[in-house]
Amino acid sequence: MPKTVQLKIKRQEVPESQPYWEEFEVPYQKNMNVISALMEIQLKPVNVKGQATTPVVWDCSCLEEVCGACSMIINNKARQACSALVDDLEQPITLEPLTKFPVACDLMVDRQIIFDYLKRAKAWIDVDGYFFSGPGPKVSETTRRFAYDLSRCMSCGCCMEACPNFNEKSAFMGPAIIGQVRLFTLHPTGQTSKDQRLEALGGKGGIGDCGNSQNCIEICPKGLPLRRAIGEMNREVFGYKVKKWLKAD
């Protein structure tokens, strides 16, 4: 008997329809990951009962865990499907779409809200223009290292999935956004306009809604220094509010 891989996939045809489970068995290959298992279903869309079915819909792009596209829940944990190697997973491997974002189809979800929150947090450097006018400010290698670690955030949504305070009842923008605000308040040019970001993070859905469960730190596939970022932003936002209150007085 050739070796096979058992999969149990939560499927949903359209956003309004009821999800259902469908099981598959695909041929095993050495070093295969969840993506290559899904590709096997694409090649031969037949479920474990031998019934012809539609191929499973999912999101992916780089397949090397740098683009953030293929987040899904694999054996009850939110992670990237590309770096989920079949050999490391208990079977049947269960695949489900992220639950904190609306399902578009099967394993594909709509994560637009992450980018909307990045807008709200003003997560960019305000440059004067895109002409050439010499180098930017000098940055120490120590600062650069911390900033670089934060700037590897792929907006994959895993931290939001794992966060108990990020859900449809709450306005909390989520851990990734706090990390990005930390990044842009770290940069010398970003510091000059940091008040607008602290205002966003001090307001509704901001850092005050973080319940300190620290799930984000555990789940982040890129190991972003979120603990430090959240701690430092708590202090910064507090300082900003005190300063604002004193000025208002």
Binding site: I125, G134, K138, E141, Y148
Partner: peptide
């Protein structure tokens, strides 16, 4: 070189030398 400096101004975290230069 101008392209590098433009990205530097926009905040790209290029690795730095001991002196803080690109």
């Amino acid at each position: 070189p101008d392209i590098v400096y433009l990205f530097d101004r926009m905040g790209t975290m290029f690795n730095r030398s001991g002196e803080g230069r690109i």
